[in-house]
Simulated scan of single mutants.
Amino acid sequence: MDLNSDSGESFSSWQMGDDEAMMAIVTSANIACGFHAGDPSVMRSTITAAAANDVAVGAHVSYRDLAHFGRVFIDVAPNELINEVIYQIGALQAMAAVAGTRVSYVKPHGALYNAIVHHSAQADAVAQAISEVDDSLTVLCQPGSEIARVAGRKGLRVVFEAFADRAYNPDGTLVSRREPGALLHDPGQIAARVVRMATDHQVIAVDGTVVGLDAESVCVHGDTPGAVAIAAAVRSALADAGIEPARFT
Score class of each variant (00 low, 15 high):
S13G: 07
T101E: 10
L184K: 11
T48L: 12
I89H: 04
P245C: 13
D54C: 13
S7E: 09
M43H: 01
V42Y: 01
I204Y: 06
G34L: 04
I116Y: 00
E84A: 12
V42N: 02
Q93I: 02
E244Y: 08
H118V: 06
P78C: 07
R235A: 10
S45Q: 09
D54P: 09
I47N: 01
N83Y: 12
H201W: 15
T27V: 11
P40W: 00
A115Y: 03
A241F: 14
Y63P: 03
A99N: 07
K154S: 10
G226W: 00
A239D: 15
D19E: 13
V72P: 10
V234L: 05
V42Q: 00
A227V: 00
H185F: 09
A192N: 11
M1D: 13
A99P: 08
A129P: 06
D186G: 03
A91F: 00
E132A: 15
D207M: 05
E80I: 11
G181C: 13
A91C: 04
E244I: 11
A215E: 08
S28L: 13
T224M: 01
Q189G: 08
D18H: 02
S45F: 03
Q189V: 14
R193Q: 14
G172E: 11
Q189F: 14
G181Q: 11
I230Y: 02
V228T: 02
N4W: 02
V158H: 05
G152R: 04
V98K: 04
E216A: 13
S62M: 03
S62K: 01
N79H: 10
S5C: 15
N79A: 10
A59K: 04
G8A: 04
M23H: 05
K154Y: 10
G242V: 15
E146C: 03
A151N: 04
A91K: 01
A56F: 12
G110S: 14
I31E: 07
I86F: 05
A59N: 09
